[in-house]
C-alpha cells in the first residue's frame, strides 16, 4: 500500500521535474489561476466539481495541458488519482484519469478509468457579461466490477454528461476576486462510478447539481467551498452528497496546489468519512 503510493508519488515528481525543465512553448495566454485545478475525475475544475473553465493556460491558437496527482485520505478509504489533460485553443479539453480507491478497512481496492471531453460553448470566465459555459462528458470504465456487482450495480461502465457555468468577478464583495460555478450533471454513477453504474433502486439517468464558490485573497491564494449532489441507486447503502472546503495556491502558471478538508459522509455504509484531500498540478 505505502510502497505503491510512494512509487506513484515518485513517478509524478519525475514528470514534474521533466516538465519543469522543458524550456519552452509553455501555453500562457490566460490569466493566473484561470486554468483552475483538476478534479478527482480528471476534468479541470475544483476538487470534486468540473468547471466550465478548461485546463492549463492555453488561449486561442495555443496547445496546453496538465499532469496531476490527487490524493484523498478519509477515515476508511484512500483515493489516488493520476491524470493528464490536453487543451486546444481554450476550446476543447481532453482528459484521462485513473482512480484507485483503497478500502483500508476491508482490504482491496476499486479502480476505474475516466476519459473526459469538455467543450467551451460560450462566454468567458472573466470578460463580458455572460458566464463561461461548457458542456462535457466523462466516460467511466470500472476495472473492479465484482464488488459493485455484488452490491447491486447494473453496469461496469457509464457516461456522465454535464453543463457547467463559471463566472469570475474581478472586483467582487470586499474588493476581492470571486469565482462561482454551477454544474448540472446527468449520471448513473454510484460513488462517481467506483461502485459501478445504476442499481437496484434506480437504473436511470438523474440530474445532479454541483456548485463551487471561491474568493481570491490575492492573485495566488483562493479559499472556497464545494458541493456535489449524488444519486442514490444502491439499496445496500445510502449514497450521500459531498462537501469540501478548499485552499488553492497558484504560485505561477506552472504549478498549482489545492488542499481541502472534505466530508464525504457515509460511503458504502462506513460513516464519518472526513479527511484531507490534495491536488498537485503541473501545467504545460
Amino acid at each position: 500500500m505505502y510502497g505503491k503510493d510512494f512509487a506513484m508519488v515518485r513517478v509524478f515528481f519525475l514528470i514534474m521535474l521533466a516538465v519543469s525543465v522543458v524550456p519552452a512553448a509553455h501555453a500562457e495566454g490566460r490569466l493566473l489561476a484561470t486554468g483552475g485545478a483538476t478534479t478527482i475525475e480528471g476534468s479541470a475544475g475544483g476538487g470534486i466539481v468540473p468547471w466550465a473553465t478548461l485546463s492549463s493556460y492555453a488561449a486561442e491558437g495555443e496547445w496546453g495541458g496538465t499532469v496531476q496527482l490527487n490524493y484523498a485520505d478519509v477515515e476508511d478509504y484512500q483515493l489516488d488519482v493520476v491524470g493528464a489533460t490536453l487543451n486546444y485553443g481554450n476550446r476543447l479539453e481532453l482528459s484521462y484519469a485513473r482512480q484507485d480507491f483503497s478500502l483500508s478497512r476491508l482490504g482491496g481496492s476499486l479502480k476505474q478509468d475516466i476519459y473526459g471531453v469538455k467543450v467551451r460553448v460560450a462566454g468567458d470566465v472573466i470578460y463580458g457579461e455572460l458566464p463561461q459555459f461548457s458542456i462535457g462528458m466523462q466516460h467511466k470504465r470500472n476495472q473492479t466490477f465484482a464488488l459493485p456487482q455484488a452490491v447491486g450495480a447494473r453496469s461496469d461502465s457509464g457516461t456522465d454528461y454535464y453543463l457547467a457555468a463559471t463566472k469570475a468577478w474581478l472586483d467582487g464583495p470586499f474588493h476581492r476576486t470571486w469565482l462561482a460555478n454551477i454544474t448540472l450533471r446527468a449520471t448513473k454513477a454510484n460513488e462517481t462510478g467506483l461502485l459501478g453504474f445504476g442499481g437496484d433502486l434506480n437504473n436511470d439517468y438523474e440530474l445532479m447539481t454541483e456548485a463551487s464558490v471561491g474568493m481570491f485573497l490575492n492573485r495566488h491564494w483562493i479559499v472556497g467551498v464545494e458541493y456535489r449532489q449524488k444519486p442514490n441507486n444502491l439499496g445496500f447503502a445510502a449514497e450521500q452528497d459531498w462537501h469540501d472546503v478548499f485552499v488553492g495556491w497558484f504560485p505561477n502558471k506552472r504549478f498549482a496546489v489545492v488542499g481541502a478538508y472534505t466530508n464525504l459522509k457515509t460511503i458504502a455504509g462506513a460513516p464519518e468519512q472526513k479527511g484531507f484531500y490534495i491536488n498537485l498540478q503541473v501545467s504545460l
Binding site: 488561449a59 468567458d124 470578460y127
Partner: peptide
Amino acid sequence: TTAEFNALVE
C-alpha cells in the same frame, strides 16, 4: 487577441 489583452493585464 485575448491572449495579448491578458498579457497587458499581467
